[in-house]
Nucleic acid binder design. Structure first.
Ligand SMILES: [Mn+2]
Ligand SMILES: [Mn+2]
Ligand SMILES: [Mn+2]
Ligand SMILES: [Mn+2]
Lengths: 221, 221
DNA sequence: AATTATATTTAGATTTGTCTAAAAATAAAG
DNA sequence: CTTTATTTTTAGACAAATCTAAATATAATT
């Protein structure tokens, strides 16, 4: 038996270790990710260690055990399948689904998840371009580059975003960027690395370096 | 803010007051329905009373307040819509969906429920024949009779069941009864009120009085 | 190497939901 | 109208998840 609070900690540890380079995750990192106190994190780490979901050494840090990694994959699978359902079947926008999926990922029923997967046609990526682990927990890796790494004249198609918060996604909506959108870099300014680009061969837009950093593309040619 | 435990108590109180004749629900009734102790129930009743979800008088009993009744309707709506989704879209059988819906009914998002309702085509009844409250909380009443009340020669169509547990529904599956099944009473035995009947103009079956008690029909002519 | 700063853990409390055992209130019987 | 039985509430305790404030360990600076 695992509680949904424990599940959220597992997810947080996985997410932090994905985006950082270091193998071990720190107490404060988890605390800030979960918007809770460091003391609460320490308590929970002890508990998850006893349940053998993580490998934890006092003062040094923490990483997921094999068991914890499987659990994290299951959670990502559920979260991303529900997000896909909300967008594909119920017509939600990609910036409206995260908080709901955050709840639905905790529903306990493997049969439900597998049937949902089938119903959606076994999608490989969620509405934010994140890969969906299959029933065995394996994920499809896609070769993608950050928009920041492209130069003047380069072209590509948007395949994912790094941040998932409403404000960021809403901004992309406003400038007309979504998964599948085609971009051509008209000019990359040396001064501040901001990028002027052409969207779907029609509109033009200017993105700051901070925004470009969080957009993933499949580069053409 | 209401917790999902509180929501389950609200539902229990509503369900008990529906099936019983008395207006006030007792502590022990709730305890047995929720498989918990009477002491826990008393604690929760105090809390729900302070939140104005129920009207509670020590030693006398409890009933839902207007606020609590709205809450109960919302919960029934969510539970039954999710059950419909699981059966209609994901292909679950009617005896497999209750426990999953018991979890999904607690997802917090009115937008989600209303979109789900639309996606399902605004169904009026769930897979067990129970009415689904609309967004305003009003439910369609259907004129139905218990199979026990029918006599030799009567005909009707199954429109609902009183019990929702797996064992009971599985038994109905075995004898070939589901929502929509047409029944004709061949013979009602005076000795123990058991009923021999014809199912969909093909098979024959014998049901005990206890089983007949829990099947609702729309009587023909 | 000693001092300062940061990160992490402990100590002690709180809230929520639960329990058992005992006390009190109400209902049922004699 | 007492006595017995049932129902309900209280008392006291516990596990889970959280908090603040204080102590301790590790890292960074002089
Ligand atoms: Mn979550
Ligand atoms: Mn996503
Ligand atoms: Mn429930
Ligand atoms: Mn139902």
């Amino acid at each position: 038996m695992i509680t949904s609070t424990e599940e959220d900690y597992i997810k947080a540890i996985f997410n932090i270790s994905q985006r950082g380079k270091k193998e071990l995750v720190g107490t404060n990192q988890i605390a800030s990710q979960m918007s809770t106190s460091a003391a609460s994190v320490t308590d929970m780490l002890r508990k998850l260690d006893k349940k053998e979901m993580i490998i934890y050494e006092k003062y040094k840090g923490v990483k997921l055990s094999p068991l914890g990694t499987i659990k994290a994959m299951t959670l990502l699978r559920k979260h991303r399948l529900w997000e896909s359902f909300l967008v594909e079947k119920l017509g939600f926008a990609w910036d409206e689904v995260h908080d709901i999926a955050e709840q639905m990922e905790h529903i306990q029923s493997t049969e439900l998840v597998n049937r949902l997967d089938k119903y959606l046609g076994y999608p490989k990526f969620d509405p934010h371009g994140d890969p969906i682990p299959d029933a065995q927990g394996t994920i499809t890796i896609r070769n993608q580059v950050s928009l920041s790494s492209l130069q003047t004249g380069d072209k590509g198609m948007v395949v994912g975003v790094k941040k998932h918060d409403k404000d960021f996604l809403n901004h992309l909506n406003q400038v007309g960027i979504n998964i599948g959108t085609e971009l051509e870099i008209i000019l990359k300014y040396d001064y501040d690395q901001s990028i002027k680009l052409n969207i779907n061969n029609s509109n033009e837009a200017l993105l700051t370096a901070a925004v470009c950093e969080n957009i993933f593309l499949k580069k053409f040619s």
